[in-house]
Design a protein around this nucleic acid. Structure first.
Lengths: 124, 124
DNA sequence: CGTTGACACCCAGCAACGCTAGGTATAGGA
DNA sequence: TCCTATACCTAGCGTTGCTGGGTGTCAACG
């Protein structure tokens, strides 16, 4: 998966995972990978700065937890974060629908049995 | 629609529109707007540089056409461009599916009648 | 006991991308 | 004549995710 694809959509993914239940950064990375069937395998250098950004924006709050001996910063959604998740969800749906509309539409309607996977001409 | 949402997905949109039939830049902008029901209303400063990028990458070829008295640069897909469109289409589907999987999944299954739009707790 | 690997966090600097805000120019209608 | 729509262009900016480095703990293996 092209890395630029994620741009602008990372926040909603993180908010959605944390909304489920408070989590620490490393667990968020693993959950994203697991839930997406392995296709969202994000580097730490992507996720940690994003978490700081979301906390600075007031969408997450964090606290250190050291139950396991290892230090962990555990994040949870703020009220504003929960509201933001709703907004971002709708924005994702709208964007996704718009892209599908463009990718799916044809000016010249083609019977599906004749259509090639990419909408291109069938050669020979 | 948050402008960062588009990042990384503009190319496939343009390729899809041009694949339909050769078009000039201004028409591409209008088609994107029309096909998306108005939600993809991209500024020229976004589309023209993208067209140059796609041509430099070998996915589009262009020629000046002056039929209407106004100069127009008309773009069409190259063979590589058509192949690339197929690749980008699949990448979009994969990405879209991954995001939906994350946004849609719940660790604790909630009966749909009780679920709030954003997956958050129902207050009061 | 040293090393390896998983866990868990952090950050500076980079590259890519879309947008802003400006510019040029033609055609047609008020 | 002026305005709007059409039609193109680009320098510079801000945001964002990633690379590549770093710190430290813990468990398992040889």
């Amino acid at each position: 998966m092209r890395s630029e694809a994620l741009k602008g959509h990372l926040d909603v993914l993180i908010l959605a995972v944390v909304a489920d239940r408070p989590r620490h950064g490393y667990a968020i990375i693993e959950d994203l990978k697991q839930r997406s069937g392995g296709s969202l395998d994000l580097p730490e250098g992507t996720v940690y700065p994003a978490l700081h950004r979301l906390e600075a924006a007031g969408f997450l709050s964090s606290a250190w937890g050291t139950e396991t001996g290892r230090r962990r910063r555990v994040y949870e959604l703020t009220r504003r974060g929960r509201r933001e998740l709703g907004v971002r969800r709708s924005e994702w749906r709208a964007f996704s629908r718009a892209v599908e509309a463009v990718l799916g539409s044809r000016m010249t309607q083609v019977p599906s049995v004749l259509a090639t996977p990419d909408g291109g001409p069938r050669r020979a």
